[in-house]
Design a protein around this nucleic acid. Structure first.
Lengths: 351, 351
DNA sequence: ATCGCCGATGGGAGCGCTCCCACGGTACCT
DNA sequence: AGGTACCGTGGGAGCGCTCCCATCGGCGAT
């Protein structure tokens, strides 16, 4: 293998200069070939490419980064919370999407889990020191100062769920309202009319949107929204249980439940069972996220699936476009995409 | 905040040189302070540190890497397989452990998902080009050429599960045999004697060890190993189903099942239910991995928990120690740790 | 008082690359 | 023929840091 011979012969790694010498051209020309500049004749390009192959040359990233003041790396920041948040494969799916989008570029993915405030402070310095070309944020908290700091530093940034309806940064989201609409429409189509909702934490924008979708669908269908059928949760199983108990106490006549997460649906299911109700005969149940739990619940849980990997991919593509955009930060700031990807209803036995 | 002022004033980021000027010392001295060299007087060190704080100086990684021929980064390589392998939070847990171990260092974590052969070839060049100081491998395939290549290149490497009993690279593993032993002992203690095993893919070393633990425990207890009670699976739910059917056909009298993964246990559970058997009254069931599914199965599944995050942490610590080891590669190669971390049995309703 | 030694320090010489200016050559115009 | 535009190209000048050698004092030993 040519590559390996290259290593062995020189002892160290071949440099640009050596490639240039071998190809009989100057450093600048080799650099142009490597960077795909059009200002190189075909013959020269070919000669350079041959020399690169023969020597097994691979550019030194550090040198490039230093000389060009780029880093060839983007960071994925995950505000790492308690140990068990990764119970759902959300994070892994995002990473999959991101790294798929990165596959044909030469960019590196830097993973940053920053739970504590101290760590986040470090990050600010870190990003400020120009150590990444762009930053991807996953599941951002509404009160996180980091994104705004990045904005000031003019570092391209994309977040994975807008923090509000007027998110200032570029963002990618799944259609939470649409997902809820799918679920509720499906229940209506099945003849259910007393459809309860267990919401997520309502300071999370996505949870608001899911609730909004629920409301809109019922209103549009002429069924009307009954506030006694709505109970807040916080995405946890325990909160699903509690919400279900409250709902049942208030509205024992309900015939369907739309929970804003599978985990809450699992809690609700337990309470429904204990109350002697059958699923879906007496009460239909729908969750959200299409997590692995959904498929293992008994009965299998109908759930709304978000295209998580696609979201990761889309975030990355938006980020890359922003990085590549030659206009000054002020101009780029003007047209920041707010992408919303459609959700899908996975119909199973529980509805 | 001093840091922010620093940015604003200079327009660009402060450099070593500026810090040196401000502290009234030479570049070399500042460099020594930053790198914690002892050959600096206390007074000077203090003056330099003050200048650093005042300017909000953060070293430029690329420049350091270039000058020192280090990279300040380690790679975590995940042989990305099909879309759905991340169904279990294994990967996320490993990342948690790794990044926890990295938290007090200044090293960066580079995430590399390399599924296709083409990507892996790229990786070889990439690592060869000295772009990382060390590499962490997760769930390595037995026939992967990459680790050996890294070994030749003398790049420190740690793998997360040895590929065989005589793994040449440093490795960290959970005690698979011990985990199986816990499970089987527990079943024996509950009075079960006809304990079946559904194994994982036996070309995976961990699966072999789990089966070995099962065998040893039965042998030690004087119960004896009955080969008709052993059926191979491949870690998938479907294979769990098939294996359970085969076992039931052959040994309808079995009173317990130890499955080498929760997912297979879920498949087995379904078949047991369909056959009219009650869990755990008629047949006790134990899984492996303590995945989220375990807690959501009905009845909740007893399962063996591996300390995954701790494994990630341990891998990283071993890697860092290897990177820091000043001895030549040949010497380092001699004492490569093979760490085995204990597993734990999470007892739930199914056993 | 002189010498030698050692710890503390300054700063030159790169690390491998990109950027950019300058140069020779060709093609086309007047 | 002379001029003007480019195009493709070479190579100097750094990017910000670490390494390492030279230097400078101060100290105890002689």
């Amino acid at each position: 293998m040519a590559t390996r011979q290259g290593f062995a012969r020189s002892g160290g790694r071949p440099t640009l200069e050596e490639v240039a010498a071998r190809a009989g051209v100057g450093r600048g020309t080799v650099s142009r070939v490597i960077n795909g500049s059009p200002r190189v004749s075909d013959a020269t390009r070919e000669a350079v490419e041959r020399a690169i192959a023969e020597l097994g040359y691979v550019p030194n990233n550090a040198a490039r980064a230093l000389a060009a003041n780029r880093t060839e790396a983007i960071a994925l920041v995950i505000p790492e919370p308690g140990p068990r948040v990764f119970t759902e494969p959300y994070f892994a799916e995002i990473v999959r999407g991101v790294s798929a989008a990165l596959a044909d570029t030469s960019l590196q993915l830097l993973l940053t889990m920053a739970g504590s405030d101290r760590e986040r402070r470090g990050l600010a310095d870190y990003f400020g020191a120009h150590r990444v070309d762009g930053v991807l944020f996953v599941s951002l908290h509404a009160d996180d100062p980091l994104p705004d700091l990045l904005d000031q530093l003019a570092i391209p940034t994309v977040v994975s769920g807008p923090r509000s309806a007027d998110e200032p940064l570029a963002s990618v989201d799944s259609d939470n309202a649409g997902g809820a609409r799918l679920a509720v429409s499906h229940l209506l189509a099945r003849g259910r009319t007393k459809i309860a909702a267990i919401t997520g934490k309502l300071d999370v924008y996505g949870a608001q949107r899911r609730l909004a979708g629920y409301r809109e669908t019922l209103a549009d269908a002429g069924v009307g929204v009954d506030e006694t059928l709505i109970e807040p949760g916080d995405f946890s199983e325990e909160s699903g249980r509690l919400a279900m108990e409250a709902l049942l106490a208030r509205r024992p006549d309900l015939d369907a439940v739309f929970a804003a997460s599978d985990v809450m649906a699992a809690g609700a299911r337990q309470v429904l069972r204990e109350s002697g109700r059958r699923i879906p005969e007496d009460v239909a149940l729908i969750g959200y996220d299409d997590s692995p739990i959904a498929r293992h619940l008994d009965p299998q849980l109908t759930s709304v699936r978000q295209p998580i990997a696609e979201m990761g991919r889309a975030m990355t593509e938006i980020l890359l476009a922003d990085i590549a955009d030659p206009r000054p930060a002020a101009a780029r700031r003007l047209d920041r995409p707010q992408l919303v990807l459609p959700s899908e209803l996975m119909v199973r036995a529980s509805s």
